[in-house]
Design a binder for these strands. Structure first.
Lengths: 218, 218
DNA sequence: ATTATCTTTTAGGTATACCAAAATTAATAA
DNA sequence: TTATTAATTTTGGTATACCTAAAAGATAAT
């Protein structure tokens, strides 16, 4: 199996299972990888042989420790590149993901560690996602979704879970950037729309958008 | 045909034909690409179909203008990355080629142009190899290796291809620094040792060292 | 010019990574 | 519980990028 193929599978399995650490099913993978379910079955069988995943047919998949280790290193490369592109090379939030998608496959630890050092070994990328360190350790946070925030609470914007260009542009327009201070003014009861103050301006956020915004209690 | 495969063929054909602009034969390609001659035949047939090369069987290959254009853009990416890795990220010249070999396939003009701008849009990499500009234009250089210099020629030292501390100290000792003026006094026939005048002092350079010194015809 | 040698091509074959359609298995609803 | 629906796997097939071994073509040497 080609290294790039292995990496794309493992990264995707990691991303799908990291939130709730559940088993990943084929259809999710087929969607994310943009290949047919039949191909996913075939791929998982090979990854099982390579001992990167435990795959039981018609049930689901999870990473082995070897698979998780590899996945973490790809996630690290991806997020370090995203951060470097944004902070050192002047790319916008909405542009970095696509380029990092290619750069993440360049396997050279010295390069990634060098970029990380230049950035001051950041623990979070421009989207607020944690960057595993060189050993694969991830900084645990007490981040919550904006949709779980409480009225009159004061929060700091830490990241997003939707990386579409449209969404990122929408956030930028309202100055909802990483580190922005947010005061929850109110939550509409009937549709869970959130009204908040950011940079002294009132912004209304739909329930759907609030699901995609990660904040930290201040 | 996969984009990376196309790029590797075209880059190699370019590198083999750029010096004397002759037609490239299969065996050279097979060697450089580290694949069998049979595979080269197959590959060239496809590249011919794609109109990147003119390929006449049992004769040889040359790039079409479309092929040369693509080749030039890969050479640009490769040399910009090499320069960036060395100058901005602190890699040694012995390390950069291998990494650039992977990075050169990342296709994003904005990225390469950004790196180029940071470096001051260099026209040559420190090997003395020209870097094509964004339009594929190459600045013709009269850089040569000292080992190719002629007796009684007058040259200017432009760079080195060996960056070991020992070598650099050796050069410094003889005041062989960038920009130094060099007059070739003689070349020993039996071992190609070069005797030159630098700063009014006579210096003897071994053939091996002369391979690593880049000079410009004055 | 004819053999010997070297190069290139053809023929036949492998492994990877994908696919659609059919068959199977699991989940859900009646 | 059985029928219906949905997910998964199997089957058979494609294209790419390689390979080896044998055949054909070009080059050089006598």
């Amino acid at each position: 199996m080609r290294q790039e193929t292995v990496e794309n599978y493992l990264k995707t399995i990691y991303n799908l299972s990291s939130n709730n650490s559940t088993v990943v099913v084929n259809q999710q993978l087929a969607n994310k990888l943009e290949i047919s379910p039949a191909s996913v079955t075939e791929g998982l069988r090979k990854l099982h042989e390579l001992k990167y995943v435990v795959y039981e047919k018609s049930y689901g998949t999870r990473l082995t420790s070897a698979g998780a280790k590899l996945a973490l290193s790809i996630v690290r490369r991806h997020r370090i590149w995203e951060t470097y592109l944004a902070k050192e090379l002047g790319f916008g939030w909405d542009e970095v993901h696509e380029i990092a998608e290619e750069l993440e496959h360049i396997k050279n630890d010295k390069l990634i560690n060098k970029l990380s050092a230049i950035l001051g070994n950041p623990m979070f990328d421009p989207h607020g996602d944690p960057i595993p360190d060189a050993k694969g350790k991830i900084k645990k946070s007490n981040f919550i979704k904006l949709s779980e925030a409480k009225v009159k609470g004061n929060y700091s914007l830490m990241g997003v879970t939707d990386h579409s260009a449209a969404f990122l542009k929408y956030l930028e327009k309202h100055q909802l950037i990483i580190g922005a201070n947010i005061d929850i003014k109110g939550i509409e009861e009937f549709d869970n729309t959130i009204v908040l103050i950011c940079n002294k301006k009132e912004v209304t956020i739909s329930a759907k958008a609030a699901e995609c915004i990660i904040v930290e209690t201040v």
